[in-house]
Design a protein around this nucleic acid. Sequence first.
DNA 1: TTATCATATAAGCAAATAATTATATATTAA
DNA 2: TTAATATATAATTATTTGCTTATATGATAA
Lengths: 114, 114
Amino acid sequence: MESRVDLEKAAGVLKLLGDKTRLTMVAILKQRECCVCEFLEVFDMSQPSVSQHLRKLKDLGLVKEDRRGQWIYYSLNQQNELYGLIEDILEHVPVQTEKIKQIEKANPTLQCGC
Amino acid sequence: MESRVDLEKAAGVLKLLGDKTRLTMVAILKQRECCVCEFLEVFDMSQPSVSQHLRKLKDLGLVKEDRRGQWIYYSLNQQNELYGLIEDILEHVPVQTEKIKQIEKANPTLQCGC
DNA sequence: TTATCATATAAGCAAATAATTATATATTAA
DNA sequence: TTAATATATAATTATTTGCTTATATGATAA
């Protein structure tokens, strides 16, 4: 088993994941990295809202970003000491295959437009 | 593995446990049932605050209560479909042995005063 | 350069949250 | 019955949260 983390840190993670949007984001990122415009396809909210949720996840170190040209890709930060907790939580949450399909159908970055 | 639960329900549990007081309560209850006056020994807040936290945990079915005379004992509800999630989360959180000692030293219900 | 696209940040606001104090309820003891 | 104890509920308030719109930044394309 992985080591236990400070209770206050754990509570911080749980608070972040205690939001439907962010929990879905993290569940999606478990399957596949995403950029903001891809998240916009599956969440019924404004671009700033999506960015702000990602910012909170980034501030706690749960996700990391990788700019590629005009896009910024987000992925889970497996180096974070709380990654094990996140993995265990996600075991209890439905896999987000439908949302992934939705993203790939919309294909907002037109990566496979050929 | 246990079955995955609805994402919205999971988010609800995480939101509740995303509070330091409630996460500590649940961690204590994993080790030992407690009544309200025992929780009062370890949390630096008023009795209504403690009761309200317990109420929220009860409303989601995470804990159950058992009245014994003038005391009401709370314990984890192992029948809840989300109990597996809670167990997994608690694996990542420090065991609350110090708080248990603190409760037993204060012994607010005087159960072993003999 | 200028225009466009992707994303971030700032400001503002309504709703939710976590505490408090005051009061009500339920049990036990006198 | 009355008093005391344990707990719950109600009302209030300050803080936090999650959204919005408006604006700024940064990269690419014309």
